[in-house]
Amino acid sequence: MQKPVINGNRISIPSTQEYLPDVDIFIEGILRGYGINESIIADIAISVSELVNNAIDHGNKKNEEKRVTVTIEKNSEAVSLIVTDEGGGFNPNELADPLAEENLLKEVGRGIFIVRSLMDNVDIAPSENGTKVTFTRALK
């Protein structure tokens, strides 16, 4: 199992939560380098943590031979991120509504909902070779 690998604006980790802090330090470091305000940095960091957790648990099913990769880019108007896994994909339309009364006290099932709430565009592209989630956050 290779440990976290950083290559430019990309970090790749084995599928274990042990490396979540490495991803967070990497992403927040890049965002601070971009000069982005702390509130937006926190929103993006929360979203990345949700998607990396999902990729580890539901995508790669904690198979440490499979990796989760996060890529970050910025233009003058927005920050864009891509989180990919190497799992079998999942159908985002099958996610339960976490705001429904019967789900309100469930301990899990809010991750994607939170990402959709905090980010401006979220595209989930499942495939047999893994799921690719692309999301952006406007800078203003």
Partner: peptide
Amino acid sequence: EWMNSTGLG
């Protein structure tokens, strides 16, 4: 500083 859905859980 912040928490995600794991913290809420």
